[in-house]
């Protein structure tokens, strides 16, 4: 009986020791695991939120793009047309200025002589330069 009791005691001690060691490992490990799980869950929620936000922004940009492109398609020819109109009007003004100058010269030959004066010539050149600048 004593022998059997002794064997049983040894088994009990071993089992309880194993239990103690197991709990010594288990408690911090399980705690750490739970903590990591909570962190990962939090990160996942953040990531899902970010995913939704990115998707919303993408959808908005995709929806806005055709509207802006359509408006651009409509406005670009108008802008080209308006710029061309300015160019044409400048050319017309240049023609009229030349015509006016010719008429003035024909009517006042004295002025014509004056126009050959270097001072007047430089003034005309300045006016010509202004035209060129406006043309740009």
């Amino acid at each position: 009986m004593k022998k059997r009791m002794s064997w049983f005691s040894v088994l009990s001690v071993i089992v309880l020791l194993v239990f103690a060691v197991f709990m010594f490992w288990y408690i911090p490990s399980y705690g750490s695991l739970l903590s990591k799980t909570a962190e990962t869950r939090q990160a996942l929620e953040t990531s899902i939120g970010r995913e939704g936000k990115q998707q919303d922004e993408y959808d908005k940009a995709v929806a806005d793009l055709p509207v802006v492109q359509a408006e651009l398609k409509e406005k670009q020819p108008l802008a080209e047309e308006a710029a061309q109109k300015v160019t044409d009007l400048k050319a017309r003004r240049k023609e009229l200025r030349a015509e006016k100058k010719a008429l003035e010269e024909a009517q006042n030959p004295e002025n014509q002589e004056e126009s050959q004066n270097p001072e007047n010539t430089s003034m005309e050149e300045t006016a010509g330069k202004e035209d060129t600048t406006n043309g740009k």
Binding site: L78, A79, A82, A83, V86, L89
Partner: peptide, 20 residues
């Protein structure tokens, strides 16, 4: 591009009025 086109239209209209 759209802003630039709008600006061109606006400026050209002003310039055209003055030229006319």
């Amino acid at each position: 591009d759209l802003r630039e086109a709008n600006l061109t239209i606006e400026e050209s209209e002003e310039k055209a009025a003055s030229l006319e």
